[in-house]
Structures are given as structure tokens and as C-alpha cells.
Design a protein around this nucleic acid. Structure first.
Lengths: 166, 166
DNA sequence: CGGAATCCGCCACGATACTG
DNA sequence: CAGTATCGTGGCGGATTCCG
């Protein structure tokens, strides 16, 4: 089993002292739930798996084929974590060859619904972000060029001071 | 400048072909906006910075002190990325010693609002998740122990077959 | 004070091979 | 088919040093 990830134990409810002013704590402490869930949905495959399973339950190989690019190792690990968090349920049919079905739990469904909001936000604002990035890159390039010109100028001055020092 | 991260260019609108059946594409392609934003808010510090700046604008050192654990390198990188994405604005006051203020842009504010939904979901369901994890770990431990007993049994049988083979 | 540049450890992830 | 086990590597993030 080896418990490869760092989650393991210490699920200490994150210490909500009073109101929601605990901005510092819910992200600083490693064992905080928010951090955990965030890492889960943000890792390379979890979100995609959740999105796919929201349509219908799927077998391991179906997921593997559909996702295209995932290694069997990562798919297994992803599914295990989702299962452990109660977001995905795993049903083994004792047939031969073996057959394993994965489906979203009710909890997983509500999470997917929540995530949709984030996806929607991204879709709605991707143009603004792209524009901001383009603008930033232009400014950065301009500043860089200015710095280089300034540097060249300084060197030119230094050279003149050397070539005619009389 | 060196452009250390992999984002750089290629902001190719992710290819929304028809409806929302592009589940495969918006997460598989590296240059997809959803992936980018997700990686941003999920990285170790961005979310915390956004949460802090949502209250009021802050100086570099204020952020550094408040966050407690962040290296100046990572704080700088985080702020640069957020600035590039148009989520945070950076204002340099040409005083001595220099003073730099960071504040959330309107775009950044809307993102923070969206993220709050996710945080809320987590707060509401952290008990279920904790319970699911505990249950999973118990099952896993039980299975492990069962496997070990089975193994011990096999070895015991093998030993008997050797000690009295007459 | 607010960075930039450099070096480095670590582990998440991928590729490969083996098992029930 | 559905995994586990093992090894190699790229890149993230931390520590340190230097600069304007």
C-alpha cells in the first residue's frame, strides 16, 4: 500500500475560529481541506475524469481510451484518490476478464456542478485574459529593449572615454 | 527575461467547436485557458494572494509578511503571473525606498467571487470527505490485513509439507 | 525595499515491465 | 482487463546572493 501521497491522516478541520476571516489558515496549513480539494480538482486528470463521469458511468479502459494521454498509472492513482474522497465509486464485477465500473457519487456530482461555475467564468473571460497577457508581453518586450539600448549607450560612452583619453 | 514558464504564447482559444461536448479538448490541450486558470488558482500561493488582495491593496512586503512561508522568489513569480493575466495590477511609486502596491483588478475580483463558491462547497462538504476518507482507509487496512493472513497461511502450509514429507 | 539571477533538492509524472 | 512495481526525469519551489 505504501501510502504514497502526503494526504494520509491529520484531517484536522482546518480551525475555523470565528467567521470567514481565516484566509491565512485555510491555505497555509497543509492539511486544510480547501487545499486538498483544490489540489485534487486541479491536478492533471481529476477534473477531466469528473467531467466525463458526470455524463455516465465508465469502465477503466473506456476512461483510458477516452482521455488519451493519461498513463494507466496516473489514471489508477487519480481514480483511487477520487474514490477515497468519496467523489467516485468503484464497482468490481467478478467476471473474467474482470470489469470495473466507475461512477460519480452524489457528492461528486455536486462538486462537478460547482466546478462548472469556474469553467464558465473562464470561458466568459478568456478573451480579457488573452488581451491582458498580450498587453503585458508587449510592455515587457518594450522595457527589455529600452534597457538594452541604455546598456549599449553606456558602453559606447565608456569606449569613447578610452579611445581618446588624451 | 528568460520567460521561465511554459505559458508564453500560443493562446489559441481552445477550439470550441460546437456545444459543450468539448470535455476532452478543454483539458487535454496544454494551451487551453481553463487549464491555465486552474493551474494558476491551484498553485501554492496565487489563491491566497487573490484572497488577501480582495480585502485591500497591499505592498510587496505586507504580502510577504502576511503569507508567512512564501519565498520572495515565489511571491514575485506569483504576482507577475497574476499581473500578466490581468488579475492583479502593480503600481510602482518612484520614492526612496521604493514602494510597490498590488491590488485586485475588476477581473480579479470576479474570479475571487467565483472561487468563493468552490471554497464554500469545500467547507460545506469537508465532513463528508473526511468521513469518506476514514471509511476508505479502514477498508484498505482491512484488505491489507486479510491479504497478509492469507499469505501467512500459505507459508504455513508450505512449511508443513516440508517438515513431515514422509 | 523590491526585486533578479543562480544553484539545487525533491517528487509528481511518464514509460516500461510484470501479475492475477 | 485492470491493475501493481520499479526506475528515470523535468520542473516546481526553496535558499542564497547580488543589484538599483
Amino acid at each position: 500500500m505504501t501510502m504514497e501521497d502526503g494526504t494520509s491522516k491529520s484531517l484536522g478541520s482546518c480551525g475555523d475560529t470565528d467567521d470567514d476571516y481565516d484566509v491565512l489558515q485555510w491555505d497555509t496549513r497543509e492539511d486544510c481541506e480547501v487545499r486538498q480539494i483544490l489540489d485534487r480538482i486541479a491536478d492533471k486528470w481529476s477534473l477531466l475524469v469528473i467531467a466525463l463521469l458526470d455524463r455516465r458511468s465508465l469502465r477503466f479502459t473506456e476512461l483510458r481510451r477516452t482521455i488519451d494521454g493519461v498513463s494507466q498509472r496516473m489514471l489508477t492513482r487519480t481514480l483511487r484518490q477520487l474514490e477515497r474522497d468519496g467523489l467516485v465509486s468503484r464497482t468490481v464485477h467478478p467476471t473474467v476478464p474482470p470489469r470495473v465500473d466507475y461512477e460519480l457519487t452524489p457528492l461528486g456530482s455536486t462538486l462537478h456542478a460547482t466546478i462548472r461555475a469556474l469553467v464558465t467564468w473562464t470561458e466568459e473571460h478568456q478573451n480579457e485574459i488573452a488581451a491582458a497577457r498580450a498587453a503585458y508581453d508587449v510592455r515587457a518586450a518594450a522595457e527589455q529593449e529600452a534597457a538594452e539600448r541604455e546598456e549599449a549607450e553606456r558602453q559606447a560612452v565608456a569606449r569613447r572615454a578610452l579611445t581618446l583619453p588624451a
